[in-house]
Every structure is written in C-alpha cells, then in structure tokens.
Nucleic acid binder design. Structure first.
Lengths: 231, 231
DNA sequence: ATAAACTCTCAGACTTCTTTCAGCAAACGG
DNA sequence: CCGTTTGCTGAAAGAAGTCTGAGAGTTTAT
C-alpha cells in the first residue's frame, strides 16, 4: 500500500517539526515548507494527497494559496490551521468540498484523526477505517460515538480523545508523558496528574459496562488499553 | 455509473475554482472555461450533460452563447449564473426548456441541488433521487417540502438548506465551519453563531414532531443529524 | 404601501468540561 | 512491617462552549 502524502505549510519551524515528526510516525509520507510560494511549487511537484495549510503565512494567506492551487488543477483537500484568536470570519469560505479547518493549538492525535476523516470523505487515498474496534469497545470516528458492548456511552471531548489514543495503541504501554503529548494540546503546560484524572473518569464510565477493566495501570510506567483479541 | 459532465463558464477565476472544487467533490466530472468562445468549443468537444453559464461574459452574453450552442445541436440544459442586481428580465427569456438560473452569490450546497434538480427534470443523465429520507424526516427536493412522520413542516429557505445539508451527511459530525461554508452564500462573512441560531430554529420546529431529537450537538466539534437507519 | 417573514447579531443564562488539589489507598523496597 | 512512592478519586473553581429570546434591519408578499 502506498503511503499517503501530506504537504505541511507553516512558517513556524516548531509547528512544522512537530507535525512532520508526528505524521511521519503515523505512517504518512511528509513534506514540509514554510511559505506560500514553496507550497505551490511543492504541491505541483509532489502531488500530495492532502495539504495542511496555515492560514497566516508571511507571503500570502491561505485563501491566496488555495486559489492558486485550485487554478492549477490541484484539488487535494486542505486542512486549514488557524490561531484561535484570529477573528473567525477570516476562515469562512475556505472549507470547500472536503476541506476542514482546526484551530491552534491542537493535539497531535487530533491532527491525525482529522486527516484520516478528510481522506475518508474525499476518498483520495487508501485510508484507515472509520470504525475503531478493540475488544468490547467500538468507536465510530465519523459520528464521534463510543459503544461498549453495543451501548452508547457519552464522553467529553478529552475523554474521547484519550480513549481513542489508548485504543489505537492497544496492548502497548503508554507513558503519561506520551499520552500528554499526543492527546493534549501541544502548548499544554500543566501537570501529568491530569492524565490520572482522565483515566479515572474513563474507568468510571467504561468499567461498569465491560466484563473486566479495559485500562490497566503499569505502575511506574504508564497505562495500557488491554484486549485479548485485536480486531 | 458514468460521472455527470459539467461545463463551467465564468470569467471570474474565483468563482470558477470554487465551483470546480465543489462540483468535483460532489462527484461530477468538471471542465471550466472563462469566456464564450471557449465555452462553445468545449461544449462541442466535451459533450457536457449540463452547462453552468455566467450571463455576463467578456466576449459574448449568455443569450449569444446559448443561441450558438443550440444552433450547433447542443441541447444540454443550462444553469445561468447572474448577479443579483441584474434585471431579471435579461434572464427570464433565456430559461427555456429545462434551463434554470440562480443569482450570485449562491451557496455551494445549493448549486449541487439545483444541478441535480435540472438533470432530474431533463433526464439527461443518471442522477440522485429527488426524495431524501433519513429516519423520520423526508425531504422532497423538487417541491422543497419537508415531512416529519408524514406531517408537512414549513421551513424558511435557510432552515431548509441547513436541514438538507445535515441530512445528506447523516450520522457524520459536521463542524460549524463546514456548515457555514456549504449552506451559506460564499461571500458571507458573519460569525459562526448564526449556525447555532438556525440549529435552534430547526429544533424548535422539528423536535415536537419526532420521537427523539434529530440534531445532536457534539460539544467542541459540531452538529450531527442522527438516525438509526439510513435509507 | 403595508404587513409579514426572514436574516443576522448579540447578550445573558445555562450547561458541561477542564484543571488543580488534597486526602486516601495501594504497591514497593528495604 | 513500616516508610516512601505512586496512583486514585471526589470536590470545587473557573473556563469554555452552547442555547435562546429579543431586536434591528432587510427582503418578500399582498
């Protein structure tokens, strides 16, 4: 299976590196540039399956870049990145077709999820399934719904993201630091105790519905989502 | 099934790209040109199933183009695009046969709906159903009528478009940005709060007639039209 | 021309979520 | 077996997101 090609366009080197590393690790083929002109050039050469585009670039804004790309016949879907405090009307009109946008700061796991959601919708490439099922729990990622043995469970956004991250790394121990880095926004600077809190919340909601606890504590190491058979 | 071929004729590159991207995403095979002469040429070569034609072109007007096309034996239906302030008499004489017209600025979802309506009427090609039924709600797109469990509900134009967009993406969470960009006119630059308002209006009209609320809020993400079985 | 309907904005009420913290429980090492 | 470390959980404050009624301005219909 061919790797999905992602083009990252952001002028902040930090964000670029952060995204590059995460997405490469998630199995994507990544190319990153820092301005609009390079983006147009790279998109033409590289034929990306999806483009991550910062709305505010030094040389041109996101609207200009997409306009240019579309006029060149490049219709890869775009996931726009925008700062939360920018007035939101700058964004309106951008998400044409299968496009979407997300505000900075985002969580790394969320980026991967959103990319997969867009690709699924536009069917530009072979991509992972919408349904993530491990053991007794099933997540429908399109609907953001979680079912435990067929029963719908209501989770808060963070609880949902945490569970998704744990499940997509089932039967593998994750340190609190890893969880914090993937599930929480990249500029979060609180304590790791929050992971404990959210694991506790999840257990309270999930354990009453499962035959045995699904989240195991590996003392001194971290947490693990456990399941006999991984579908 | 063969893809429906659409020929876009507009001198504004922005509109051309906007339409191209949206229609391609909607599953059409798209070709776009910027003036009347190219349109005639492309229509002869490409045998489009439908033509989107800006009434005001630099080289000739919509009337000349259609006259030329008809004289050549090309009888694909035409969806005229016209600025709102242009007197409507200019257009009314044009829309003979299966033709129709719509004023700029339009909403992207609306264009797709209108194209499908025309094709349905003229039966030029295989096209999606006129009736959209999901769960307890049925929309007759030809009549613009909405039935909830058989009972006719009166919706304003915007309410209707919003419901149609939600229903055609049933069981999938849509962000407010996506909703705004697809349902509202492309030059709308207000706040996203308006989506909340209209969801509220819809709920007030629909919920009293359904067994359970049909529009779910996914906090921090967006809205979703929910239904157990999707027909 | 007048009334009715519709679109859009806004502010306050309201709900839910996030984060921290402290006290308690469990596991570990010597 | 006891002290220490690590993890669990309930409470609570504050933050964030959402809902909705009121109203101004505009368009449409009669």
């Amino acid at each position: 299976m061919e790797a999905v090609k992602v083009l990252i366009v952001d002028d902040e080197p930090n964000i670029r590196d952060l995204l590059s590393t995460s997405l490469r690790f998630a199995g994507f083929s990544v190319h990153a540039v820092g301005n609009g002109a390079d983006a147009v050039f790279a998109a033409e050469k590289g034929a990306p399956d999806i483009i991550l585009l910062d709305v505010m670039l030094p040389d041109m804004n996101g609207f200009s870049v997409t306009k240019k790309l579309r006029s060149m016949g490049i219709d890869a879907p775009v996931l726009f990145l925008t700062a939360r405090d920018e007035t939101e009307d700058k964004v309106t009109g951008l998400t044409v077709g299968g496009d979407d946008y997300m505000t900075k700061p985002f969580s790394l796991d969320e980026v991967v999820a959103r990319i997969n959601a867009i690709l699924r919708r536009t069917k530009q490439a072979e991509v992972e399934e919408s349904v993530l099922e491990v053991g007794e729990i099933r997540i429908n990622q399109d609907a953001h719904e979680v079912f435990v043995n067929g029963e719908l469970v209501d989770l808060s956004p963070t609880e949902y993201k945490l569970l998704r991250f744990l499940m997509s790394n089932a039967n593998r121990v994750l340190t609190k630091a890893q969880i914090l880095d993937h599930v929480w926004e990249y500029d979060f600077n609180g304590e790791m105790g929050i992971v404990e809190s959210y694991v506790s919340y999840l257990r309270k909601k999930l354990d009453p519905l499962t035959s045995e606890p699904v989240i195991t504590t590996k003392r001194g190491v971290g947490y693990m989502y456990k399941s006999a058979k991984t579908k």
